[in-house]
Nucleic acid binder design. Sequence first.
DNA 1: GCAACACGTTAACGGTCACTAACCAGTGCG
DNA 2: CGCACTGGTTAGTGACCGTTAACGTGTTGC
Lengths: 207, 207
Amino acid sequence: MSTHATTRVAAPTRREQILREAARLFAERGFHGVGVDEIGAAVGISGPGLYRHFAGKDAMLAELLVGISERLLDGGRTRVSQDAAAGDGSPGSLLDALIEGHIDFALDDRPLITLHDRELDRLREADRKRVRRLQRQYVEVWVEAVRALYPALAEAEARMTVHAVFGLLNSTPHLTGALPDRDATAALLHRLARGAFAAAACSEVPA
Amino acid sequence: MSTHATTRVAAPTRREQILREAARLFAERGFHGVGVDEIGAAVGISGPGLYRHFAGKDAMLAELLVGISERLLDGGRTRVSQDAAAGDGSPGSLLDALIEGHIDFALDDRPLITLHDRELDRLREADRKRVRRLQRQYVEVWVEAVRALYPALAEAEARMTVHAVFGLLNSTPHLTGALPDRDATAALLHRLARGAFAAAACSEVPA
DNA sequence: GCAACACGTTAACGGTCACTAACCAGTGCG
DNA sequence: CGCACTGGTTAGTGACCGTTAACGTGTTGC
């Protein structure tokens, strides 16, 4: 990859570099478990040099979590629009697109996924509310897609199912070590998610 | 251990009380995020009084995590034996029993479930290895049950599916606040898990 | 009665850690 | 040149926190 990269995806700026390493370290050892000196060391500068780029450790976590949540929501909404525009009819296409997008995210940004549901409580009130709002909106995008496909499914059950499927898709970080084959993993996860949704819709209230 | 405890389930001893509150606090704010004074305050004693019952903060976490892992594995193995003994034939009965047991655990001991996959790295090497070993054995119990029901499913995929289903079942702590109806929740989760397993077994390699 | 002990208490200590202060090298620019 | 600004550096500081020390108090067995 590009040391100079004359074109678009410019070389990763220092800020981004710091954020990436911080995400990795936070995911590995927890927010409180990693010191600013370690974060600095991970990008080649040491300790308080970070304060030229961030107001503090909290600010790094906040930017990470808000960033993840925004990217997830944006990605979801983009797929909704694309699917609506393409209007090719197949009823599950939107749900498939959402699942695929989430899987890409879970596989490519494992540290962020870990942080996303692990360190939310370490945020200041304002940031936490913002992240929760974004998360709620993302869930809502999914719930609508699910209910469009399975109209018989009640809203409460759809929402819980979406949460559960998130847990399923986000389970990849728990697989210690690199996973063997990315495509096969993605395909399997996709199948599992669809299976869960189908089961949710089937035999809704079992007497 | 027990001071005298002539009988079985005596009133909750101080130790157990401390463990429960510590689990709750660790789950809420992370191992490093909660101080010994808070744990003490949660059980009515203050600060260093805890050291009459535990060697240190680490020891509490270790006992919690080892305890969870042992209870899970024991529960799983018990159900395997019971199912084998009852030998009533229905092929999915063992898997259903495992799912049900895990759901009971996830719903009744939410803080422990949270700790179980969040704070493992805060343990000393020896304890961490022990917990991982127990977890691996528990997964293996599931993998065998799954492959007994779906013999066509490859072992690697079965194992990954089991991990994913754990993620699905363990998603309940993320549902902020008390869940509305325990039985309905359990039934839904059970259905989702079965759906995921069925999907894993279906159309194993898609060309 | 009293020694031993279980179970607390408060005070202090040592280390860690986020953050600040003060300082400094390079770069672009008039 | 001089000047400002960016992005570093090291040293220090105040707070927090896990742990230990020293001490006290009821209960229990002999």
